[in-house]
Design a protein around this nucleic acid. Sequence first.
DNA 1: CATGAATGAGCATTCATTCAT
DNA 2: TATGAATGAATGCTCATTCAT
Lengths: 211, 211, 211, 211
Amino acid sequence: MGVKERKKMEKQMRRSQILGAARKLLLSRGMDNISISKISRESQLGVGTIYFYYKSKEDIFIALQEEGLSLLLDIIQQIHGQKKLPSDRKLVKIADAYYAFTRDQQEYYNIINYFLSSPRIFFNEDQKNHVDMAGSRILQVIQEIVLHGIDTGYFNKTDPKKFSIMFWATLHGLVQFKKLEHTALHNENIQQVYDYSVQTMVQMLHKKGEE
Amino acid sequence: MGVKERKKMEKQMRRSQILGAARKLLLSRGMDNISISKISRESQLGVGTIYFYYKSKEDIFIALQEEGLSLLLDIIQQIHGQKKLPSDRKLVKIADAYYAFTRDQQEYYNIINYFLSSPRIFFNEDQKNHVDMAGSRILQVIQEIVLHGIDTGYFNKTDPKKFSIMFWATLHGLVQFKKLEHTALHNENIQQVYDYSVQTMVQMLHKKGEE
Amino acid sequence: MGVKERKKMEKQMRRSQILGAARKLLLSRGMDNISISKISRESQLGVGTIYFYYKSKEDIFIALQEEGLSLLLDIIQQIHGQKKLPSDRKLVKIADAYYAFTRDQQEYYNIINYFLSSPRIFFNEDQKNHVDMAGSRILQVIQEIVLHGIDTGYFNKTDPKKFSIMFWATLHGLVQFKKLEHTALHNENIQQVYDYSVQTMVQMLHKKGEE
Amino acid sequence: MGVKERKKMEKQMRRSQILGAARKLLLSRGMDNISISKISRESQLGVGTIYFYYKSKEDIFIALQEEGLSLLLDIIQQIHGQKKLPSDRKLVKIADAYYAFTRDQQEYYNIINYFLSSPRIFFNEDQKNHVDMAGSRILQVIQEIVLHGIDTGYFNKTDPKKFSIMFWATLHGLVQFKKLEHTALHNENIQQVYDYSVQTMVQMLHKKGEE
DNA sequence: CATGAATGAGCATTCATTCAT
DNA sequence: TATGAATGAATGCTCATTCAT
């Protein structure tokens, strides 16, 4: 019995050994520079071994993406959990947290972003469902906040689902514009635009005249 | 001098010959299927010749991106040029046109998106200035519309530049979410969210109570 | 002794378990898609276990070949057993049965064919005797029929062994030509050639003038 | 002009350099042991170079097969060209020549045989046509001989095409049985069976009674 | 007996790039 | 200028086999 458990532990360890190597490569060299043989070299494991634990390169990417998403989700849920915080503050804080995430966990952001924006289809139906559901949790949290704001009469009535998607898409789009700061955007500071946008969207939710 | 000019002309012709082949491959086979040797075959030019005119594959991509951007810019400017159209209608039409563009000119959209979402930095200083200016013109048009709306008292006062960037980023972000329609978005129709978002943003610009 | 016997039984069971998995893979996925690890997965046994019972992939193929041959032999013997059937009818029926076998049991046919047409020598002395005897039985049956035909004065005198080998080789060769039907054979229907050949060979056996 | 021709010559040389290496590997190690990288090593050329001259592994196989077929065809046509030889003697000589070919040019025989008997589909439609047409020439020669024999009243009337296919298939099948000589065939000498079969088939063609 | 983790050579193919002509 | 032959590293992935437990 102890044997079985140890085996299981070791298996877990190998998986994280592989993921560790992949993560290291991801963080140091970027998405386009990961290959199975590089992971093999980095992890000191044979290529066959990599394939024993992950049945394709995509599976490894998925695991990494899930890491990133769950990291982000944790942050967001931690904010969501602050019962005393009013709904609008929650949205602002979440937006800020996302901006910080894209800055501080750049490569995790990159990997999430990579799959979202690539025209290529990387994942089969199963994989897609698996991954996207993780991302869907984030949208759900925002939706819950909006819904709660509406229910308590704090926010105007609006389609909470549509609003949440717009909200998140706006943040997402703005972050991608960051690299245009000094060219197309003529030195307009993206972070300020980001703050402006968040504020604007949140104000939209507030009942006119009340405030 | 006549000689010099002819030489320059010929050089231009070769470049457009190459670009033509690349464009054909882009539109017919997609981004991931362009390689120098394929361009060589398609353009009836030697690989060496390709390299003489474009020093790397990325340079060709950049040129194609410019094409796509200028295509999009044309559409937008054509809308902008409709003097009789009120500012809010213009914004809606531009948004609709962009959505249509991402649908109908998918490969051009993909290549624009590719550079925008890639974590890598592709451009040297020269290329940056040269290329992104095309994208910047789009934002300028929107900005002009917003500004004109404010100046004529049609829109609320708001930072026109920041608003334009937000506006565009939202559209851009939403289009990228399209691929999540059936997973993370739980079958929420993105086009409807897109319309909702455009409407919402435009309404924000309108003076309260007036309309 | 009872223990020894049970051990032997269990060993047989394991072997047939492995063979069952291999057969399933053979019939469903074809020869080229069998690998030890696939057999391992299919049979619910560890790869090491497979190697314990069969010391190589080829050994498993040989076992499958035997299966196929014995399947074919059964069909042929069933025909041979029809006492009332005249010798010439038997030959025709056997030929037809073989043709049907190559069509309906394609993967068994493929594996038999594989060993027969491969330039490599797969068998060690042991395997040779063991395996080929199955094939040899088929020839014996034909030989018996021919011999009986001659003995009863139904057929001309000819070397029964040589004739049988020629008979079988012709069928075998023709089946292999099937894939040339639309190219080298210029749409000549192989089945018709097959029938023609069988008839021709059988007529050769008949006494001239009689019938 | 001289330059162009030399280039062409050099290109031819490279092709035969590659084919030479492939042939050498084929003859020394057998079909299953050829890989592009082995050809690359053997020919002292980079793998990329191989692919520059042959666009796939299959193309190389085809070239080799064509070599073999044309070798065989030459022999057969040389016999066919002997105007004085009666039709039956021609058939016997061709059969003998084929038997000798399978013995003396074993690896060429193996490669032809390999593709004929493999259940796998190696070639696309184009490649198949290309190759099989070469094989079809052999059958045509036999057919011509049979037809000529019939026309001159030397042979019985029979379907010349069907007969030719049967004739060749029988030879082909018998050669494949060679490896069973000491097992399934119980030491019956295949060459004798071969001779017996050829004689038998040729006699069938002769008018009864005349001879 | 039975396991299944680990291996690493091997596969066909693509590619951006160089360079002698 | 223009060519296209040559390169060889790189890719994702499979597989038969071994061996410590």
